[in-house]
Amino acid sequence: MPLYWVQAEVLAKGAELGLAPEICSPHRGVAGIFALEALPHPDIILWSNLICDNTAKCGELMMELSGSPGFFLDNPFQDSPGEMDYLTGELEDMVHFLEEKSGKKMDWDRLSEMVALTEEEIELHREISELRKAVPSPMSISGYLELLSADYMFPGQPEAIQYLTQLRDELKERVQQGNGAVSPERFRLMTLFVPPMYLISYLGRLFEELGAVSVVEPLFTCWSEGKLDPAKPLESVAKKSFLIPERRSMYGPLSEQALQDITDGAEQYKIDGAIYWAFMGCRHTCATIRVIKEILSEVDIPMLTIDCDIVDPTINSEEEVRDKLDQFFEMLEDR
């Protein structure tokens, strides 16, 4: 069955549960998947308000639909010693909950190993970001989503390390040979939020045709500074919550540091323009559009905003996106 139909069926099922198209489509999709029983029945549901507050409610719905017991992990907004202690306490409670429900004891040595791998994984992400500063930049727009998948699908797993190591090595080789993702490289872009996933192949072809490359995504691929300590595994899991890039705009207030990271990124990655993929279902990130546009304008970087939905293919057409990108690139060329 074509992916489009699967998406449509899943989203329609979510809508039947009262989740309107204006509501975050990934959450609508998760509800639809559970309602369709498209996933194996879960014994336990674990969820958290990281990476966004919508997720808090999404987990409750999953519990209701599956009838499974669940544990909600409450992530605090700020990175302070008190809030780190609070989050570590939450994780301890979660471990007790899992031990009780599963009848098994926590394997702390295994967790330490995973923390060590996560530290290695984050370091690889940082190296990859550094390599992407090269002119021409070596990674295509589709590489952006693949990069995200590494931590989303395999956090602290050998698969993530294997993938990221190979990617790092390939990018290093491309940089050494002076090979860019597109040739010639005409427009270096900052990507804010995530492009529609169903358009990613199209965008890959289009960017190649137009000579555009996304070189930095400060809200999704730039990990914050900080180290994890395998000797303190639970604290390290808490610490990772404060290092993930998505925390900058999707969770809690938009801090001065996050804004500084964006303007620093604009300079360090030598960008010509920024594209904000304004995911209409994500109200709290869309609220940041104006302020991000203004701070980029202060460093003379224009920003294009494209209203979109990252999952629902009925919102944007390829032609509409092409038209907006054509206008934006003409503007960059004309400056």
Binding site: P302, D307, E320, Q327, E330, M331, D334, R335
Partner: peptide
Amino acid sequence: GRLADWANHDK
């Protein structure tokens, strides 16, 4: 006289 920004209603 160069394009600096734009916005349109397209929905």
